[in-house]
Design a protein around this nucleic acid. Structure first.
Lengths: 120, 120
DNA sequence: CTGTATCCTTTTAGATACTG
DNA sequence: CAGTATCTAAAAGGATACAG
């Protein structure tokens, strides 16, 4: 996932590209509060396979949003954490949450219009 | 692209799903300022093929972000515009732009560190 | 003018087994 | 523990031609 350097109609596409990937948001959410180890994330997101987890982590690392800290010990120990840049992404992510929440309630209320109130 | 009703770890994933698609942001950007006709958008985004443009428009319509207004005339006339909900998405989109811009300058400055200043 | 239909390529993710 | 390797499936997008 190398970021294009041109051809964007809007810089929001850059951000979108950074967080596009089925497990990027779950991973970033985990790292928002804690430093996490590989194994730990696998357990917290049981549906993700090791291959895909590795890919998502490597892409986030390559884009500079997270840092991979390797300890030279046996057995291996690797910690992942947000970078300063990754931390700066959080407000935008929160706003996406806000709209997502708004959207879900909006959709729900739309449905309600077609539900007949019970005439008790 | 039917929206899942559960299984999100965060509601930002809902929003992300709504705007994921190679041409969704360009389309939304066009509609942010004007009502647009199909043909008009094809000309403004020349790289998009009619099939894909139709798919993206239909998905945005299905998710309630845009409205498709059909005039019963010959030759056909169809106008696309943001819904109220689509309009409410704009602040989040702007914040994605902000971070995207910030990200690009950040990356650029990182590169600069490896450029040796010329010793004239 | 506003699309559809068909075929093909690319991208992304999942299943499963294995390794330093 | 922290990954790789291989194979397969599904989703997304592009090229091109055609239709009401």
């Amino acid at each position: 996932m190398k970021l294009k350097t041109s051809g964007y109609s809007c810089t929001s596409e850059v951000t979108l590209e950074l967080i596009s990937g089925k497990w990027k948001i779950p991973v970033l959410s985990l790292l928002a509060s804690h430093t996490r180890r590989y194994n730990e994330m696998q357990k917290l997101i049981p549906e993700i396979t090791p291959k895909v987890l590795t890919i998502q982590l490597r892409e986030l690392e390559a884009s500079g949003l997270i840092h991979r800290k390797v300890y030279a010990v046996v057995p291996p120990k690797v910690e992942y954490m947000l970078t300063e840049l990754g931390l700066q992404l959080m407000p935008a992510l929160l706003q996406l949450c806000d709209f997502g929440t708004h959207y879900l309630t909006h959709i729900q209320n739309q449905d309600q219009q077609f539900v007949q109130p019970s005439k008790s």
